[in-house]
Structure formats: C-alpha cells, structure tokens
Design a binder for these strands. Sequence first.
DNA 1: TATGAATGAGTCTTCATTCAT
DNA 2: AATGAATGAAGACTCATTCAT
Lengths: 184, 184, 184, 184
Amino acid sequence: MAIDRDSVLKAAVGVLSRQPTAHLDEIARAAGISRATLHRIFPGRDALIREVGLLALRKYNAALDTAAIEDGDAQLALRRLAEVLVPDAALCAFLAGENQLFDDPELCALWENQDARVRALFLRGQQEGVFRIELSASWLSEAFFDLLAGVGWAVQDGRLAPRDSAFALIELFLGGALRRTSTS
Amino acid sequence: MAIDRDSVLKAAVGVLSRQPTAHLDEIARAAGISRATLHRIFPGRDALIREVGLLALRKYNAALDTAAIEDGDAQLALRRLAEVLVPDAALCAFLAGENQLFDDPELCALWENQDARVRALFLRGQQEGVFRIELSASWLSEAFFDLLAGVGWAVQDGRLAPRDSAFALIELFLGGALRRTSTS
Amino acid sequence: MAIDRDSVLKAAVGVLSRQPTAHLDEIARAAGISRATLHRIFPGRDALIREVGLLALRKYNAALDTAAIEDGDAQLALRRLAEVLVPDAALCAFLAGENQLFDDPELCALWENQDARVRALFLRGQQEGVFRIELSASWLSEAFFDLLAGVGWAVQDGRLAPRDSAFALIELFLGGALRRTSTS
Amino acid sequence: MAIDRDSVLKAAVGVLSRQPTAHLDEIARAAGISRATLHRIFPGRDALIREVGLLALRKYNAALDTAAIEDGDAQLALRRLAEVLVPDAALCAFLAGENQLFDDPELCALWENQDARVRALFLRGQQEGVFRIELSASWLSEAFFDLLAGVGWAVQDGRLAPRDSAFALIELFLGGALRRTSTS
DNA sequence: TATGAATGAGTCTTCATTCAT
DNA sequence: AATGAATGAAGACTCATTCAT
C-alpha cells in the first residue's frame, strides 16, 4: 500500500494554514516522510498546494450540500453550515492565507460557485426578513468566511477550544457582540 | 531629497498585505526605487518586514489611545476604535498574514500589550452589561481583529468600498447578521 | 558514495591559497561539485574558510607534535619540523593570506598556542647557544613562517620543485644566504 | 588644490597590505575622503590597485638604483638594498598579497625586469663566492622578497619595531638563524 | 569640487527539484 | 518504494560605480 495521500494532505493543511510560506521540508517532516517522497506523491510544491486547495474547496462544497443551505429557514441553514464547517475550519484558514491560489482558473471557478451559493443564502435570508439588509450579502458572506478562518487559527493555536468554536462563530456572527436588552 | 522611509513602508504594506511572499523586487518597484536602495534603507527582508510590523503595531496602539478605549461607554469606545482603525485596516491584514512575525519578542510583547487593552475593553463592556457574556472577551477581541483584517483585504481587492468599511465592520460585529424583530 | 569533506577542503586550499578572493564557483568546480552542494557541506563562505583555517592550524599543531619540537637538539628539532611542514606549505600560504581569519577567537587562540610553542623552541635554542641571540625568538618564529608560506607559493606556482623545498627552506633559514668561508 | 593622489595612495597601501580584499569604503575612510571622491581620483578599484602596484614597483626599481646593486661587493649591495627597501616594506607586503596584479602585462614586465636584476645580484654574488651556491639565485631572490614582505606585515601590526626591521631582515637573510661557532 | 544618494552587476544563498542507491 | 545526496534556478544581498546636488 502506498503512502496515504490523505495523511500527507492533512499534515500539509496543518502546517500551511499556520504558515503559508512553510518549506516543503517542514511539511514532509510533519507528514513523517522525506522531501523526496513528498515529491513522488505530489509532482511539486504548486501541485501540493493546489491539491490542498482542491480538498478545501471540495469539503466546503460538500458542507454546503450537507447543510442543505438552499432549504428551509435561512438562519437555521446558516447554523447547520457553521456546524458542518467548523471541524474543517483549518482548511478555510488555509484558503484565506493562500489567496494567490485563485490564480488557477479551475479553483477560482469552484470558489466563485460556492461563494455564490453562500451569497444566495444571505440574499434569501434578507428577502425573508431574517438577515439585516443594511449589510450586503457579499460582505456577510465574506465576513462569515473571515470569522471561520479566524476560528481555524484560534483553534490551531490553542486560543479557542474546538468544542466552543461552532458556538463562538455562529453566535457572534448572527447575534453580534452587543447584549440585547429586553426592553429595546 | 532623500527617499522617505515612510513612503517605502507604505508601499511595502500595500504589497505585503496582499501577498506576504512578494519578492523584494515588487516592493521596490511599488516604492519606485531599486532593490539596492531598498536594501540601503532596510538592511534586509526580515528587517523590512519587522519595520512594517512595528509600524502596524504602533498605529494600532495609537488608535487605542486616540479612541480612548478605556473611557466612557464600552460600545461607543469600540465604535470609536473601529472608526480610527479602519483606514489602516491594510496594516491589520498584513499582521494577520505574517503571524510568524510574533517570534520576535519585542513585537510579541507589543502585540500582547495591545491585545490586553482590547480584551479589557470587552471585559469592561461585559461587566457593564453592554457586551454578551456568553462570548469570551478574548474571542471577541480576536474576532474583531479578524473582521478588521477581512475589511482590509476586501477594500484592497475592491470588494468593499472604503466608505462603507467602518459601517460594515462595526455593524456586523456589534449587531450581528440577524435582523432584530421589534416584537420578539 | 558521499562527498568527502576532506577532498573539498583540499580543493579549497588549492584555490584559496593562490587566490584568497576566489569565488565559490571556482572552489566548487575545483572540488568537482556544484555550488549548491558546496553550500550543503559548508553552511557558507565564512564557514568554509574557517574550516580550511582550522584544518591548517590542526595540521600545523600535529606537525609540532610529530616533530617533537620540545625534544632534543633545537636545531634538529627545527629541521624535523621543516620536513614535516613543507608538504603542507600550501596551508601555511593560505593562513598567511587570510590574516582576517584570526578575528575568530578560537582560531586566534589556536594560533597563539602554536606560535608560542615555536617561539619557545627558538628561545630554547638561543639559551642552548644554538640560535643567534641578536634576533628575537618571535622574529625568528615569524620569519620561519614567512619562508614556509613563501615555499608554499613557490611550489604551487611551479617556481620551486617540491623535492627541493624542504632543503631550500631550512638551509636558508638556518644558514642564511652567505657562504661560510672556512678561514674567516 | 586637488586632493593629494599620493596621500590617498599611501592610505590605500596601509589598508590593502593588511587586507587585500578591503572595500573601497575602508580605503576612502582611511584617506579621509568619501567613496565618490575616491572614484573621481581613480577611475575604479582596478585602477587604484594598479596605481598602488605601479607605485610599489617604481619604488622597488628606484631602490635597486639607489642601492646600486650592480656595483661593488654583492653582500654590501644587498645590505644597501635592504636598508633602502625596508622603509617601504609595506609596499612589498602589498605586492605579495596581490599576486593577481601580475595579470597586467605591464606590471608583470616591470616585476620581471626588477626581479631579474635581483637574481643577477645573487648570481653575481654566487660567482664571487659570496653567496651559497646550493640555493638557487631565484629562490634567494624570492626568499628575500618573502622576508621583506614579512617585515612589512610585522611592522604594520606592531610585532617588529621599525628601527629593528632592517637589521632583522638582513641579518637573518644573510646569516641565518644558527649561531656561528668560532671553532667550526 | 566633493559628496550623499541611488543604482547595476554579480556573488552568495536557499530553495524546490531530480538522481542514484 | 523510499531516501540521502546532488543540483538548477531564482531570490537576497553587497559591492563598485554613477548621478544629482
């Protein structure tokens, strides 16, 4: 059995999400293999990063499906999405740090497609009166992603407990930082 | 007239916040000088990045002072802080992308000091009943910074109008994405 | 088979003793390897030069031991030393050309230690009535080294036959250029 | 009055004889002028070094004339030469360290011419029975130069008193290190 | 004229990548 | 198949050199 591509990818995510400029040395060490072997599995650095990007985008897309964001109440759909995405927040952190990745037309298209679905979710929610209309759907989409990446970083660096991360994300994003006074 | 360190730093921020791995070539070109001159002003790449980091942290610290975040209502203090920080959001985006920067003890200490002030602001707000207590002060502080960096990226890439950025940041962060229904 | 550090060092001596400013390119070519490999073996130019210096000083020290300069007649001891040192005269030529090398405390200490032994040899010879007392022991030591380096250069450039070099060195140094007339 | 070329040359000798790879910065500083001014006086580094080389060779040649080495007893001629050369030993030290200098045909020719005169002196001395014939004239010439350069270094670095240098040179070179026992 | 400032050229260095075992 | 060893390519860096004052 060949070395497991997935385990190498996972190691790469762990290293690259924290340090996008990490050397292949570190990634190989994190994966427990040598640089040369890393090259046998992935034809080169760009290929490796592209694979990680593809993995991230596929998981993101799968999460959109799993959460069925086009169905039902927009708020609940977003809550489902957060629940599904948070375990892979590191992948989103990776994507946030490798914005050069989107020079690749295929990845860019994938991202656009998925981002469009999220924007559509917010738009739907705004039309249904669930989400605020003063904030554009695209900003909501971007901010949601920013916080998701932030959760990924915070968890990886031990500043946020994985168990709390979904709550922290969705509560802040949906409800904001202000306490709602009952009388207002 | 001598080359202005600050103008070079500004150009470096513009380039590095979008692309942390940018070559010195690009930075020099963006600053309108040659690589050699860039090296005369800053002894090396690390020194340049460190200087940009210092600039960012100093601006951040100055913003905390300007906004007087220790004074008055916590919500208003945070609103003032957002207003002051947003024009320099690119610097925060840079900081977010160069987390390796905090290996430097001095920069790390500076950051810790400033982050502590922001956490104290949230803590005060929570004690005063202004901010929600279900979200930890440190998460609020980190999330605020994440959104600030996100604003920086979005503005730089033309996805968010500079004019709207302060509003987008503070409204989402304070109020969240959900529309508040008057009857609930 | 792994590249031999010693063979690289030997090549470096050959190049650097003639031309202290030689590019790493030339040294690598002389060693039959690429610049990159040279860098893998020695972390940098300074490290390489330092290693060559260490090699030279170690050989010099070993020669002092081999010749047992502290034992027996001082003149014979010096003759033994010359015999042992001459094959490595190129190393001494290298040392003579890289006097900046002695900024390094360790190398400087090594040199001082060895030079002290040679000075002690001359002092002993002077006390035994073997060496002239009008010439200070430190000057004798230095002059001996100068001639040794000169032999190294002359041999490398083909102006002196290796076979004659020990004789040329020791005869000139001990006896001087003047013919001794029996009647005087 | 323009900056004195000679004072700059003198400063260059002082620096370059100790450190052949010295930067123009150091030479300019030693001469009390700026790098740019140094460039105005000498068209470039090569030109400067060539000028110093020419100066050294001219002084050497002048010394051969002043000492009238072709006249009278060979031993006395060499003693006169040593007396005349020792004050400029630093120049010889410079020449010894810049052997690349002799790639220049003119300098090479000059050197060859002068070296031939010195070799002729030794050859004459050997034929007159003054110098030993076991040591070739060319080796004697080279060794004399080596010791002269050694004197230059030793004086510059404070290991030899200028006052003693001529004596140290000529006594060692002519008489050698061995004490001559009256009975032998 | 003399100089601080700027730069072109070329070396040093470090990667990602390939090769031989 | 996996790896240590070797290398090509390209960026970082430092000079000598030139320019503008």
